[in-house]
Nucleic acid binder design. Structure first.
Lengths: 166, 166
DNA sequence: GTCAAGAGTCTTGACGTCGAGACACATCGA
DNA sequence: TCGATGTGTCTCGACGTCAAGACTCTTGAC
């Protein structure tokens, strides 16, 4: 592992090491970076989506519908579990997406309590364009890795994330 | 890289692959996991801190003060840059931390516009306990990695995060 | 059939964050 | 000394999320 340049996390970890020499602070070298990376990604996404006039939360919902495949329909409950927000939040999101004409609510044919949320043609077009832009941005970020770095990183992350699947 | 078990991200990526065969969706294998990991970490932290009756945002601020070293004093502006929130948010946070007796505001001696936020003994005790708990939780999560996995993961993340330091 | 328990969706109020701008003071050049 | 510009902190209104609970309909046992 080359030493390139001291980054912000290195400084934070060094500070903790100095202040709490009784602790093993190595986990911070991983998790602080995960945190910061997630934050930066948020920003990158926001700017990527802004070109197509989409908000991050809109993409969250639309992309779940998009990757479900034709006819691009899911229940609010399914959207809740896929996007990891609460039901109240999802109701609010669907309301706003419906106002903007990106989805429509349909009554479920076989459960009268149920509702199905469906992508409109405009919603489909927007989410496809956003995904194209997003992948372009993300690919450029990963270009900093050496060959083999991408799958290695994915595999390591997968192992760690797997710890939470209980 | 062993194939262990298909995880949620694998399913998401496979779905995109099927729906958009024109795109290279490999970046998702990294960034989707970063996202999910960050979310899970949030939860893990919240429960770890709950034992010491601290909120995540409180720890954010208190830990910046703690690792600054004695006398555990920073300006609101410094706290803003370290915690990556806006100034309005920081004012609000300091207000609440002051009410709870975990920090105090002092006038800066050499800049009459300025303020210095200082950890109280109670704040110091709480943040130290929280850090101890947090590292225990994080270390256990990383135990899933093989030897050498931790530094490898940290190095890869560092390269990627470095892309944003502009 | 009927009733209890469960499932799916939506409503409500509280809360934390953001972004823009206000205000006080500092700094620097003329 | 004076004004212009920069810096540090705080105020305010809008917004999105959450948690808890209300409501409607379904399911299964009796």
């Amino acid at each position: 592992m080359d030493q390139q340049h001291e980054d912000e996390v290195d400084r934070i970890v060094a500070a903790w090491q100095r202040e709490r020499p009784d602790l093993d602070v190595e986990p911070l070298t991983v998790f602080s970076r995960v945190d910061r990376l997630a934050r930066h990604l948020d920003r990158a996404r926001r700017t990527a989506f802004a070109r197509g006039h989409l908000e991050t939360w809109e993409f969250d919902v639309l992309s779940a519908l998009r990757r479900a495949g034709e006819p691009y329909r899911l229940s609010p409950g399914a959207l809740v579990t896929q996007t990891l927000v609460t039901s109240g939040t999802m109701t609010n999101r669907i309301d706003r997406l419906e106002e903007r004409g990106l989805v429509v609510r349909r009554r479920s044919p076989d459960d009268r309590r149920g509702v199905l949320v469906e992508l409109t043609p405009d919603g489909l077009e927007r989410v496809d364009a956003a995904m194209t832009d997003l992948l372009a941005v993300e690919a450029r970020i990963l270009d900093a890795l050496e060959p083999g770095g991408r799958p290695a990183l994915a595999a390591l992350l997968r192992t760690v994330v797997g710890q939470f699947d209980d």
